[in-house]
């Protein structure tokens, strides 16, 4: 094992020589439908600048997000559009029955998620909002968080906000959730005793073995990951990160992950929605 770690260290250091990795500047190559991948950070914040995960990927991965046809995430966006117009549940309604044309009614909606729900007295992620609509208005069954339907619907709805600035509410009733998310972000957990910040704040822009560490921004989710060979949710990515540091992951849709989602969106303000992004 010792030799293995040693070999891995050598590889991590040697990998610094790859020429095709590294953040790009806005105005150079950009993802389709997006004009900003690098933004100035708010004063007093923890980051010098806000960087989309786009810049941490290799040229050939980036190319998949530079043309909507090349982007396999659009297979889910297409499925989402079909589902939007499909009647489901006892009420005999589809999404379109109430919300009509998604390109009008859903514009900006995904960019502002998670959003405070005054009636429920809590924030709702896009997944939770979709399911609330399904059970309350359509009298249809809930979709599972990581189901093909939910991923397709969230990719479709988020895609209607592509290129719009991330616009989550962080004040008022959302404040305690931002605070809780921040707390979780900086809390070391797991056998490796690491926090989100150890990688994504202190070491972004460096190699973790052969992989280039991003700031862990959330503006591209749901994202098509080459590793998953499909689209996946932000909470799935959270779970993956927690497993990597040998921590017991929270559940998808848990208050912990919702708080982290809110904090991350707030932390990434200045970036634009890229969903569905293509990442490693």
């Amino acid at each position: 094992m010792r030799g293995l770690i040693k070999a891995a260290v050598v590889f991590a250091l040697a990998a610094g020589g790859f020429a095709n990795f590294g953040p790009v500047n806005a105005g150079e190559d950009l993802p389709a439908g997006v004009t900003v991948v690098k933004a100035p950070a708010a004063k007093g914040g923890p980051l010098a600048e806000i960087l989309s995960g786009w810049g941490s990927r290799s040229k050939s991965t980036q190319q998949l997000q530079q043309d909507d046809f090349e982007n396999p995430g659009y297979l889910w966006v297409d499925k989402g559009e079909t589902l939007w117009n499909t009647v489901d549940g006892k009420a005999g309604k589809s999404c379109a029955t109430c919300h009509d044309d998604a390109s009008v009614s859903m514009k900006g909606v995904g960019a502002a998620m998670p959003k405070w729900d005054a009636k429920l007295g809590r924030p709702m992620t896009l997944e939770q909002r979709v399911n609330a609509c399904r059970t309350d208005n359509m009298e249809a069954k809930e979709w599972k968080w990581e189901s093909d339907q939910m991923l397709s619907m969230t990719a479709y709805v988020k895609n209607q906000s592509r290129g719009m600035p991330v616009n989550v509410q962080a004040d008022g009733p959302m404040e305690p959730w931002v605070k809780r998310g921040k707390e979780l972000y900086y809390t070391r957990v797991g056998q490796l005793n690491m926090s989100c910040a150890n990688c994504h704040e202190a070491n972004y822009g460096k190699f973790i073995r052969a992989d280039y560490l991003s700031q862990g921004q959330s503006n591209g989710f749901p994202t098509y990951r080459l590793k998953w060979q499909k689209v996946g949710s932000l909470h799935r990515r959270f779970k993956g990160c927690m497993k990597n540091i040998r921590a017991k992951p929270y559940k998808r849709g848990s208050d912990e992950f919702v708080a982290m989602e809110i904090y991350l969106a707030q932390r990434g303000k200045g970036l634009q929605v890229e969903s569905p992004a293509v990442r490693n």
């Binding site: 046809f69 090349e70 396999p72 659009y74 297979l75 889910w76 297409d78 499925k79 989402g80 079909t82 589902l83 499909t86 093909d148 339907q149 397709s152």
Partner: peptide
């Protein structure tokens, strides 16, 4: 499960003798 439609990008018009590019993607 939503059945996925294949994605195809093929031109609708071309001049005789043109070489056209076709792209396809399926889930």
């Amino acid at each position: 499960m939503a059945k996925s439609k294949p994605r195809v990008k093929a031109p609708k018009k071309a001049a005789k003798g043109d070489i056209v590019t076709i792209k396809t993607l399926i889930s």
